[in-house]
Design a protein around this nucleic acid. Structure first.
Lengths: 340, 340
DNA sequence: TTGTACGCGTTATCAA
DNA sequence: TTGATAACGCGTACAA
């Protein structure tokens, strides 16, 4: 295994010093046109590639940004990643992508690893706004941007969609269709979905309904969870008293729930309406195209990445950039007017 | 912004040399229990984190593996990534995940970037077995493993599913259901799907059919492509002579095609049968659950990652590990017996 | 068991 | 315009 060539090899080849080669490669102005040409040609024939470890060590900047997503299998997050990717590529930054699987310990481990690789900054959809990973990033003073999550803290950067408004949007749609009893699949430990639940609750009470009349199941995050919770409810006698609408805290959960309803012989939207949250691309393809609340995922990633870069450039203060995106209702086929 | 602490800081704090600290943190045996304890405690109170750039530079190993996928939005690839991730994590390696978007120039750029970050090896689902990225990796002698692709080259590592057999599997299923005319959505420039097409062709001809009687549309890779190709065909007069079955070169394409059929008032499987390839998780959730050919995605990633690690360990030769996985048919609801 | 000295590949500072 | 030298943080051969 032949060693990769370095600026030292180039220097030796054409008889100049390493510093001259470094300047030539960096496109510095203080260098003669001729030596620059010789340097470039030698670099090419030696298949030279710069060593970013050495460069990073020397400059204390790596041009790499770490990204921690909650679940790489959920198209919501990968679309956010695409937004990040384009924004970073525009500026010559590299994206180091990782996935926590919603596990706080993994999230912390990933933050730690990224820090050790000396990324210049981190973009993260945290499990919660005060997860250990977030505290870790803060205590180590790594520039970072939270996505899909918010916090009252004034010195943290975040971009989130207005989950309270979104939850209300979903509730009002169902109320408008005449629904009065709901099966709500939430996740109390994920702040974003907790807010959606709050918005929902407020809208229900605004409509004169009591939360205590609703069925609330906690712990939903994946489509498996959604299917499992619904199956458990139905097989546990819930069938006799089935609510007329199911509310998923995200689309994955709603899709799983819908599938479970079908396999128990319950039709959507004939017997029961289902609504989700996120507007992932597959919503249009599923068994019954899903009515949901749209989030601007690509833009979320893009804005967060650009905000982080602004911080890294030093053109922005280190913290306190905060964005709240308005969600909007997307009506497809999974919700229908309630008929006794 | 306070500088991150280093082994030098620890050394100064407790009055030993940097090498002693290095040994202490590495868990070397040649060190007294007492100094080790003092080192560890100082490291903790200083919030020390090792600098992987420096370590990598010094050891010429980074414990990082680069991964280049074709499309991070396609669940096929993210499931492969999960397999990789678990295999790498078991061994303390970090996964650097990237996505080429099927663009050869991007793929090359990513390979180059990963090399510059001095990853120990690369796992890649290449656009083709002799893409520039692959040639780049070979010429730079980076240990790598191709996934979802194969080559006759004896010294390249790869794992692929038997696409010829898989294509035949799909064809034989449809033939068995009585179908005789097919709309085939292929992609000639992606070797894997080209093989599927070959297997399909062979099976058709084995069944006494001629390829020239079939409708073959090229350039399919995403669900948008599938939808667009079908829409183009239908709106261009294909409707009058619609084949009884559509074959997608992957599930994304098949799902897009199915959606387009529906929006043109053609029922699946009532009027037309649809078959895909990959068995991505959403196949079960879509409008008409998709009959498809299963690929062991998670295992593919896992095997490739373990194979690469074996090479890095030096326990295996640098090249020539090759795996062909048998695909299998998964029957759902999108294909039905042909009736007149 | 511990310390000294050097190398990894690059950039930056200063002098020539 | 160029070169010598130090520095980035860590690991390691060698010496003590």
């Amino acid at each position: 295994m032949t060693r990769a060539s370095t600026i030292g090899d180039i220097a030796r080849r054409i008889g100049v010093s390493k510093s001259t080669v470094s300047r030539g490669l960096a496109g510095s102005s203080r260098i003669s046109a001729d030596t620059r040409r010789r340097i470039l040609s030698a670099a090419k024939s030696l298949h030279y590639e710069p060593n970013y470890l050495a460069r990073g060590l020397s400059k204390s900047r790596t041009l790499a940004v770490g990204v921690i997503l909650e679940d790489i299998m959920n198209p919501f997050f990968t679309e956010v990643a695409k937004g990040i990717q384009t924004a970073l590529a525009d500026r010559g930054y590299t994206m180091l992508l990782t996935s926590s699987g919603y596990v706080p310990a993994t999230e912390l481990e990933l933050a730690r690893t990224l820090l050790r690789y000396k990324v210049d900054g981190v973009l993260i959809t945290p499990v919660s706004a005060d997860s250990e990973a977030i505290r870790f990033l803060r205590s180590h003073r790594v520039p970072f941007f939270m996505m899909n999550e918010k916090t009252p803290d004034r010195d943290v950067n975040w971009i989130d969609s207005d989950n309270l408004a979104g939850g209300a949007l979903a509730a009002e749609h169902l109320l408008g269709l005449g629904h009065r009893r709901f099966l709500i699949l939430r996740n109390g430990s994920l702040h974003g979905t907790a807010d959606r639940f709050e918005g929902l609750r407020a809208a229900l009470e605004g409509g004169g309904l009591s939360l205590s009349d609703q069925v609330v199941l906690d712990g939903a995050v994946s489509s498996q969870d959604g299917a499992g919770l619904v199956a458990g409810f139905l097989e546990d006698g819930g069938r006799r008293d089935m609510p007329s609408a199911v509310v998923g805290c995200n689309d994955a959960v709603a899709i799983g729930a819908m599938e479970s309803l079908f396999s128990h012989g319950i039709r959507v939207p004939g017997d029961v309406s289902v609504i989700g949250y996120d507007d992932i691309y597959m919503d249009a393809f599923i068994r019954v195209p899903l009515t949901t609340v749209h989030q601007a995922k690509f833009r979320m990633g893009q804005i967060a990445a650009r905000g982080l870069l602004a911080v890294l450039d030093g053109t922005e203060a280190a913290g306190g950039r905060q964005f709240l995106i308005k969600p909007k209702l997307v009506i497809r086929e999974s919700c229908r007017e309630y008929s006794r």
